[in-house]
Amino acid sequence: MSDAGDDRSPALTEYAELHGCSCKVGQAELDSLLTDVGLSEAQEELQFGVGEDASARVIADGLSVVSTIDFFTPIIDDPYEFGRIAACNAASDAFATGAGDDLTFLVVLGLPQELTDAATDVLCGIVDAVDDMEGVVAGGHTIMNPWPIAGGSVIATTPSEHVLQTSDASPSDRLYLTKPLGTQPAMGALRVRDGEFGETIAETTARPVQDIADEALAWMTTPNRDAMLAAREYATAATDITGFGLLGQARVLAENAGVGVELTHLPIIDGTLELSQLFGYGLEDGESAETSGGLLLAVPDRQTDAFESSLSDANVFYRHVGRVTTDSGATIVDPTIERVHG
C-alpha cells in the first residue's frame, strides 16, 4: 500500500496477492467442486456447458447463443489498461466457441473503497475494448471489494454449424496458437522492477523490462475476434489460453476429446523465458499462467493450407505448435522455443 503522504497514484496490483488469470482456482480443485455440486455431466438442454469455455444453446433454427462470464484481479496498475485486458479476456471465452456476432457485455467491477476514483478509467477501458470488438456494453454490476476485480458476462451468437468445443478435436488434427506466450513473467517483472529486486530483474534479461511489458500488454489487449472469424470455418475444436497455461488448457482439450496432445513448439515474447526462470513460472514447460492469451485451435491436416491463408489474410499471428494424437493427456516433447519480438 502507499505510505501516508505519498502523492503517487495507488497501484492496483498492490491490492491483490494474485494477479490476472493466476487468481483462477486450480484445475483439480475446480473439477472436484463441479463434481460435488453435480455439474460434471452434460446438460441435455445445452449444446455444451460446464467444462467448456462457455455454454452454447440453440435458440432458433441454425442459430446458437453463447454465454460466459470471466473476471479477475489486476495484472497491471493502469486502470484503463486493466479494463481493456479484462474485457478482451472475458470475450475470449465466447470467441473460443466460434461466437462473435451480436456481442453484448455486462460489466463486473469491484474496487476497494480507496480506489473508487479508478472506476471511470477501468470502465472506459472496458467500453473501448468492447467497441473494438463490435459489441455493446449493456450494463453491469459494481461493488466494493477488498481485491480489485474487473471483467464481465458475455453473450454472443453464431451459426450453429460454426460452434466450436474442445471435445471435437480428432487425432491427426494440427494445433495452432494465435498469440505468443509469456504474459505472466512479463507483467511480474514490471511489478517488481523498481523494488529491492530491481537490479536482479534488469540483469536477468537483455531487453528492457518496459519493452517486454509493452509487448505483453499489446497482446493482452488484442481481441481474439479476428482470429475466431478467420478460423471457425476450418477449426474442429478450440480453447483460449488463460490461467491454466498452455499445457493446462491442452490437458482440458485432451480430456474432453478423449485424445492426446503433443506440443512441440513454444512461441514466447522475447525476454520472458529468462524472467520465467527467475520467478519459477515454468514458461518453458507450458505451465506459466497466461492472461488474455491466444486461441489454441485444432485443424484437420487437409485444411491447414486454407486455414493459414485465412489467418494471414486477416493479419492474425499464428504458429503451428503441435498435434492431436491417439494417446491421452497432454505433453510437451523437446519443444522448439521461438522468441517473438514486436
Rank of each mutant, 00 (worst) to 15 (best):
V209P: 03
V209T: 15
A202D: 09
R191F: 10
A227G: 08
V192H: 12
A186M: 13
R193Q: 15
A218D: 14
A218P: 01
V192I: 15
P223C: 03
W219Y: 14
A230K: 11
T183A: 15
D214M: 11
A216I: 07
R225I: 11
K179F: 08
R191K: 15
M187F: 15
T183L: 10
M187L: 15
T183F: 12
A235Y: 06
M187K: 07
A216M: 07
E215V: 08
D214K: 13
A186N: 13
R225A: 00
A202R: 12
N224L: 13
Q210P: 00
A231P: 06
F197C: 00
L229N: 02
V209K: 05
E233P: 01
V192C: 05
I212Y: 03
M187P: 05
A202E: 08
L229G: 00
A213Y: 05
G188D: 15
D226I: 02
V192S: 07
E196W: 11
K179C: 09
A202F: 01
T205E: 00
Q210Y: 02
Q210T: 06
N224I: 02
M228W: 01
M220Y: 08
P223H: 03
A186Y: 12
D211Q: 14
A227E: 04
F197Y: 08
D214W: 05
T200S: 12
P223G: 02
D214Y: 04
P180L: 11
M220D: 06
E199S: 11
A227H: 04
Q184N: 12
D226T: 12
D211T: 14
G188I: 02
G188E: 15
D226C: 01
I201M: 14
A218L: 10
P180Y: 08
A227Q: 04
P208S: 01
L190T: 01
A213V: 04
G188L: 14
R207T: 06
G182H: 07
Q210E: 11
A206N: 06
D194E: 15
E199G: 00
Q210A: 09
A206C: 00
L217S: 11
T205N: 01
Y234Q: 05
T222Q: 11
E196Y: 05
M187E: 12
M228I: 01
G195P: 11
L229Y: 04
A213D: 02
D211P: 00
A213E: 03
L229K: 09
L217A: 13
T222I: 03
T200H: 09
F197D: 05
D194G: 14
D214S: 13
D226S: 13
L229C: 00
V209M: 06
G182K: 10
